[in-house]
Design a protein around this nucleic acid. Sequence first.
DNA 1: AGCACGCCGACT
DNA 2: GTCGGCGTGCTC
Length: 720
Amino acid sequence: MPRIASVLLPMPLPEAFDYAEPEGLDLAIGDHVTVPLGPRVIRGVVTGLRDGTGGNRPLKPVLERVDDPPLPPGVLSFVEWAARYSVDVPGWPLAMALRGLRHPAAKPDKALVLTGAQPARMTPARLKVLAAAEEGPMASGALAAAAGVSAGVVKGMVDEGVLAVTWVEPDTRFPQPDLSRPPQTLNPSQQASADVLSEMLAAGGFQAALLDGVTGSGKTEVYLEAAAAALAADPDSQVLILLPEIALTQAVLARFEARFGVAPVEWHSAVSPPRRRRAWEGVAAGQARIVVGARSALFLPFRKLRLVVVDEEHDGSFKQEEGFIYQARDLAVARAKIEGALVVLASATPSLESLWNAQAGRYRWLRLSARHGAAQLPDIGLIDMRETPPEPGRWLSPPLVKAVSVALSRGEQSLLFLNRRGYAPLVLCRACGEKMKSPDTDSWLVEHRYTGRLVCHLTGFSMKKPEACPHCGAKDSLTSIGPGVERVEEEARHLFPDARIAVFSSDTVFDAAGARALVDSMAAGEIDILVATQAAAKGHNFPNLTLVGVVDADLSLRGGDLRAGERTFQLLAQAAGRAGRHEKPGRALLQTYAPEHGVLQALKAQDRDAFVEAEMAMRQEAGLPPFGRLAAVIASGPDPVALEAYCNALAAATPNAEGVEVFGPADAPLALVRGRRRKRFLVRAERSVDLQGFLAAWRARAKVPNSVRVVFDVDPYSFL
DNA sequence: AGCACGCCGACT
DNA sequence: GTCGGCGTGCTC
C-alpha cells in the first residue's frame, strides 16, 4: 500500500502539505525531507504518514530524505501547539525549531592510521611516531606534535605506506557534566526548596513550581541542585535553563561550570552558526545535557527533557514581539507539559500571572527567605501631595524638586516616571464645564502639544484643538487639566534650565532604534533628567540613576497599562539591587494623594505580599490578566487610506462572541515604524473564552490587501 | 516566503 | 517594436 507523507514546511503556509512517499524510502515522522513546491525544492519535516494515494489529484513525491537528526515527537507537538497558541501558521515555529540546521553539518576530518606495514628502515623518530599512532587516527599535524617529530617524518611514513589517510567524524560531543561533584552548601531555606524540587522530579510527569525569593536569596543554587538531581536520576535526561538574553553573561555561565565541571551548552543570538549546528545536533542526540539559553532555546530538539528553568521569569524580554510572537515563559510551561517535565519559574519579583498560578495551587510555591545582608528595596518615600502640594498648575512637589536638584548637584541622574502620554489627559471648558470627549466612546481626549491635537488613546480619534468650546462657544476657555509627560518635561525645563532633559514616550520614540539610542544615551550619562512613560518596561540598567520620582503614583495604581504597577515595583526592586552594590544609595519618591492606600503602604513598607494582593484585586475588578485575557491586533502599511479601509473591514468582520470585547482601531503604540503607519485593535476576553479560536476565526474572515500586514499578538506587553 | 504569471513605461 | 516594473495568487 502506498503511503502519503504530510510534510510541514518552514513557511507561512496554513498547514502541512501531502506528498507521495516513494517506494523504499521508508520515512518516519520527524524525518527531514526535500519536497517540490511549485518550481522549487524545499526542506521540510514529516509530521504524519498514512496509507493512501492522492486520489483524484495525484500527489508530487517526496524527493529525498535529508540526513539530519530527526525531530523528536515532542518538538512537533510543541510546534503545533505554539502555532495555535500564537494564532499563527505552524511554519514559523517550525522554522525556529530548525534554526540550528542552517549551517551545513561538519565534514569528516582527514586523519592518519597505521596500516600495519613495517617501515623499510626504523629510526628513533619513526618509533616515536608509531607509538603515538597507536592512540588512534590523528591529523598529521597532531601526530607529528604528539610524537615530537617534524612533519617530514610523518610524511615520509605516509609515502612508504606505513600510515594511511582515513576520514574520521569530527568529535562534536560535549563533555559530560561531572555529577560526582559535591553539592553546594545550601542554607535551610534553600535546602527545603531544593528538596521539594527533587521530590517533584522523582515523582515524574509534568509539574510546575514558582521559585520565589528576593535578590540574594540564592535561587540559582537551588535550581542548580535541581538540575543536578534531574541529571543524576537518568543518564539520558536533559535540562534547559532559560535566561533573559542580557543575563547570559560569562559570569553566569561560570556558575554552571563551577557546579558541573563543564561549561553548559550555550544557545542565544550571539552563538555562531557552526556552534549552533553543533549544539542542535548535541541536543538532538541527547548528548548535550545542560543547555543555557535565551528564549529561542525552547525550540531545541530535546529528546528527554526533564527540567526547564525560566530564570527572571518576570522579565519582559521573554516576550518576543517580532516575527513569530510568543511569550517564552508561557511556552516553557507548555513544552514541559508536552515532555512531561518539571518547569521551574524563578524570580525575585514574579509576574502576577505566575503568582496567581501559585496561589491557585497550579504551581508549587517555593519561597526563599532572604539571606542576612541581602539587598533591600531602596529607601521608598511617599510624598503626601495634600501636605506638600506643588504650586498651582505644577506637578512636581517641593520635596521631589529638592531631591532632583540634590541629584543634579551631585552629577547623578533622575528618572521622573509618569505613565501618561501627551500634555494633559483632560481638556475642559472653564465657562461651561464641558469635558472634551471622544465621539464614540466616553473617554477623555488627551491633549498633545507636540502636534496641537486632542487624541483619544482608545479609538485613535483625533481632532485639532479647537479655539472655542464646541459646547457653549466661549473663546479661549479650554483649559488643560492634569499632567502628561510633555507637561512634566515643560516643568522640569522651567525648574532646571541647565539640566539635560529627555522624554521617553511613544510620541518621542518611534521605533526600536530610537529607544535603543535614548537608553544608551541615558546609560552613558548624557541625560540628567529622563521623563518617561516607558523606560521601566524592559529593566534597563542605569548605573548613575539614583533617584526615581513617580509623578503620580496613584495613576499607576489605577490602571491604564495593566503592568504599570508591577513594573513600578520591579523598577524599585532593581534600584534596590544597585543600592546594595554601589556606594550611591537608590531612592524612590512617590507622589500621592492617598498615602494611606494599601498598595502605597505596601510599597513603602516593602511588603510585597500586600502589594500583590492589592494589585490582584485591581486586575480582577478590571477583568485584566490573569483574570481575563488580552490580545492585540496590529495592522500596518505604508498607505494610510488602504490601512484605514482594511481596519474598517476587519472591524466589520469581528465575530460575535459572548464574553469578548473589541476596542479600536486606534493608533498603535509605535504609530509609525519604518514608514509604515500602524493601527491597533485591543481584544479583552473572559478567561472561559477560547481566545485563540476567536482570533483565528476573525483572522480568517477579512482578506488582507497586499500593502497591509496584520499581526495578532496574544497577551501583549506593549501598551503605550 | 519565493516565484511565476500578468498587464503598462523607456530603451537596445 | 521589446525589456521590465512589481501587483496578486499559488504552492500538496
